[in-house]
Simulated assay, not measured.
Amino acid sequence: MAGKQTELEALLVPGIESLGYQCWGIEYLSQGRHTLLRVYIDHADGIDVEACAAVSRHLSGLLDVEDPISNDYTLEVSSPGMDRPLFTLEQYQAHIGEQVKVKLRSPYEGRRNFQGIIRGTEADEVVLQVDDHEYLLPIDTIDKGNIIPRF
């Protein structure tokens, strides 16, 4: 799956950037016969429906020509939103002090789910404070991480 993710990023990111948007992240979820390709885009001025539609049209054409996904799939283009997913170490670093929910691919100290405050990054690890304990979570073990919005 990581190979497919890397292939899709190499194909899609230049197209997204050519339209003036930042590729916040890509989720490739293959579950049996149903595949979902979710692309998150961002821009300093925000993202609206028209931006998502323009990027979706552009990526659809690119995906039709290059055909990196052999079976049927659904393409979704979205803003990261307030509960934005975090994909990279740089994104975690940019959100130090924010509260997040993190789900790991495999258990660490007997648990897969953590909720705490991002305290920083060290090498390839996210420093997450949960109550009075700090965890060093390697970025490649994180399956999913999302900001918890404050209202």
Rank of each mutant, 00 (worst) to 15 (best):
Q93N: 10
I118R: 04
V13I: 14
L86S: 07
Q99M: 15
G46A: 12
Q99N: 07
P14T: 12
A54L: 15
S56Q: 02
L89S: 08
D83K: 09
E90D: 15
L19G: 02
V100L: 08
E134P: 02
R33G: 08
E76W: 03
Q99S: 10
Q22F: 09
I47Q: 02
G116A: 08
L29R: 11
P68W: 15
D131S: 10
G110I: 05
E134I: 12
G61M: 05
E50A: 13
G116C: 11
I69G: 10
H34P: 00
S106L: 01
I69L: 09
I118W: 01
L59K: 02
D83W: 04
R33I: 12
A10I: 06
R105E: 00
E27R: 13
H95R: 14
A10N: 09
P68F: 13
I139F: 08
I117W: 02
F114Q: 01
D45L: 12
L89M: 10
A10E: 11
I117H: 01
I69H: 04
V127G: 00
G46W: 04
N113C: 04
F87T: 04
P14K: 11
L62M: 11
G97P: 10
K144H: 13
V100C: 00
S56A: 14
W24F: 09
N71G: 03
H34C: 04
D64F: 11
W24L: 01
S30L: 09
Y73S: 10
G110R: 02
S60L: 11
L36V: 14
I41V: 15
G32T: 02
L63W: 03
V39W: 13
T121K: 11
L29F: 07
D143R: 15
T141S: 09
L62C: 12
F87D: 00
T35P: 00
E50D: 15
D72T: 09
R84K: 12
E109T: 11
Y92M: 10
F87L: 05
G97Q: 08
I139Q: 13
Q115G: 05
E109M: 05
V39G: 00
K101Q: 11
G120K: 07
V102W: 03
H43K: 13
E109K: 01
G145W: 03
F87N: 01
H95M: 06
L137Y: 06
G110L: 04
E98D: 06
E122H: 14
H95D: 06
V65R: 01
L104A: 06
E122M: 13
G20Y: 04
S30M: 07
G61K: 09
D143F: 11
V65M: 08
K144L: 15
V127Q: 05
W24P: 05
D42Q: 07
H43I: 12
D42P: 02
P107Y: 07
F114N: 00
E76S: 08
D64Y: 13
I16K: 05
G32M: 07
I26T: 13
R112D: 00
I118K: 03
Q91I: 13
S18G: 05
Q31R: 11
A53H: 06
E98H: 14
S30W: 04
T74M: 04
D131T: 13
V55T: 07
R57P: 03
H34M: 07
G15E: 15
Y108D: 06
S18N: 11
H95T: 08
L63G: 09
S30C: 07
Y40N: 02
T141F: 08
Q93P: 00
A51G: 10
A94C: 08
F87C: 05
S56F: 00
